[in-house]
Amino acid sequence: MIKMFHTGLPALDIFLTIVLLILITYPILGGFTWFVGVICYKLVFKHRQPDWIEIPEEIEPLITIMIPVHNEEVVIAKTINYLMTQLNYHNYEVLVLDDGSTDTTPEILSALMTTYPNLRVVHIEKNKGKAHAFDIGVGFAKGKLILSNDADTVPEPDALWK
């Protein structure tokens, strides 16, 4: 046993050494844990999720895709165009929470609103951050379910019904 501490108390030395070793090797230990965890999930866990079950269009629950944005003129149009045209889902709305943007985001959003009837915008005049935007947004969301989405990311086309 290598000792990296010499306090005079052997038990404490061993304890501190083990703590230090765990700190040094934690990426390796993390890798082990991940690997073993996957094997446990595949072989030992009995309640694995079965394959996706499709929802018929008639009973799709209304989903609100909530997007907090702040000065996103570069990406917002692309993201919303994708959400409106590429998803394999029908009963949804997109609620954009414009958290006090000072660039052309508001103009882009109002132009998009004329194209897409299920696009709604809540404009927060005084910027107060993402968490605050969500707190406001849940009051305006119509959906039974809420999907939080960033202005620069998109879900895969099947994400909503899955």
Binding site: S110, M113, L119, R120, V121, V122, H123, I124, E125, K126, K128, H132, D135, I136, F140, A141, K142
Partner: peptide, 14 residues
């Protein structure tokens, strides 16, 4: 739940 555009005044912030 139906309004398409709403502007939150600074005093309405949470």
């Amino acid at each position: 739940e139906s309004v398409r555009f709403y502007s939150i005044k600074a005093v309405q912030n949470l």
